[in-house]
Write a protein that binds this DNA or RNA. Structure first.
Lengths: 199, 199
DNA sequence: ATAATAACTGAACGATCGTTCAAATCAATC
DNA sequence: GATTGATTTGAACGATCGTTCAGTTATTAT
């Protein structure tokens, strides 16, 4: 037995994933070569195959990890039964989670078409689970007579698109603080659902 | 002089653009080869270069044409001075225009990063012009005391993201009619801006 | 028919692609 | 220090990439 502690694989492995993420986000999956990833890591292309079966596996791992992380994080939250509080919570959570992972958010949307069919189904399923979260919050709010919208599914899509679009322009080091951003979107979302109460 | 009427170029040219559009939308710019486009058109790869200087030109033409078309179409509209009517008009226009061009909408967002720097600036500039349209409607609505939102720019981003996201799931041949879709988003947008009047 | 030219072919250019693998290298254990 | 096995190299595989261009084909005007 040899090579346990301080092994290079503990460094190279994560470095490959991180580099692949950054390059996929910047140039797109198809435009990034294994050699480019390897050279950024400081290794030869062949070495990557100790950490992934192929290029597709590299992409899938990133997307799968992201979706798992998203769902796990939500289920750690303590969510109120009050629809308005739950809605606010979801908006804040979604913005927090996505703003600090712009690259992952980006490729999770952009590179879906580069997944092979099996992998695509898996990711789409996880995505559906996430959409159900906000959909159920809205559905409950409607039946409680608090939210004034007709279709919870359409409204879910509208809210998620609106919130996720933030990563296209928001910069953590800009003039707008994340706190103000969340305040603003909280109000927009409430109003969108026909709630006029105080923030 | 020869070859004027009934020239093949009047067929092949548009066919190349249309095919490139479909393939770029489906597989992504980087993943589509000139040979693949050519074979779908029923021509050899070299023939494409009679119609575009290079692959980049093919992409730019599609994006530029789309943005020009979008802006021109809007400026043909007769827009009310009433902020609520103008907002409704914009929502309906945006949905109409985008729903029947899902491929163009898709690549206009996905393939921005594959534009070379000069071309990118041009498209981003046109995009900015479009964003200004809804931003000015909101700004006027706020100063008229009709819209209850704080930041017109953020709200513009929110509305555009929300509306454009529709192309990801809406299908013209589905159960939901385009009329109902527009109704729904009209209400969501109004409510988002704090307008509670009747639809 | 013939000349003119637009449209296209088909082969070739050098470069790069994802992936494989025998050989070399390295660090931990004995 | 020798052994062991994880880790990486570096070269090679066949395939495909964007682009060019001399030559062929097709269509129209004369």
């Amino acid at each position: 037995m040899a090579r346990k502690t301080g092994s290079h694989s503990e460094i190279t492995g994560p470095k490959i994933k991180q580099t692949a993420l950054e390059l996929f986000a910047r140039y797109g999956f198809a435009a990034v070569s294994m050699r480019k990833i390897a050279s950024e890591v400081g290794v030869q292309a062949g070495a990557i195959y100790n950490y992934t079966p192929d290029k597709q596996g590299l992409l899938f791992d990133l997307l799968y990890g992201h979706m798992e992380d998203l769902l796990t994080s939500w289920h750690l939250q303590n969510v109120s039964q009050d629809p308005i509080a739950a809605l606010d919570h979801f908006v804040g959570f979604h913005l927090d989670f996505h703003i600090c992972r712009p690259d992952l958010v980006f490729i999770s949307y952009m590179e879906l078409r580069n997944l092979n069919p099996n992998n695509f189904i898996i990711i789409e399923d996880l995505r559906g689970n996430y959409e159900n979260i906000i959909c159920e919050i809205i559905t409950k709010g409607i039946s409680d007579g608090i939210f004034k919208v007709k279709d919870p599914k359409i409204t879910s899509f509208a809210i998620i698109a609106m919130l996720t679009g933030v990563v296209d322009w928001f910069r953590s080091d800009g003039v707008l603080t994340e706190y103000d951003l969340k305040q603003h979107y909280s109000i927009l979302t409430r109003q969108m659902l026909g709630v006029n109460g105080p923030a």
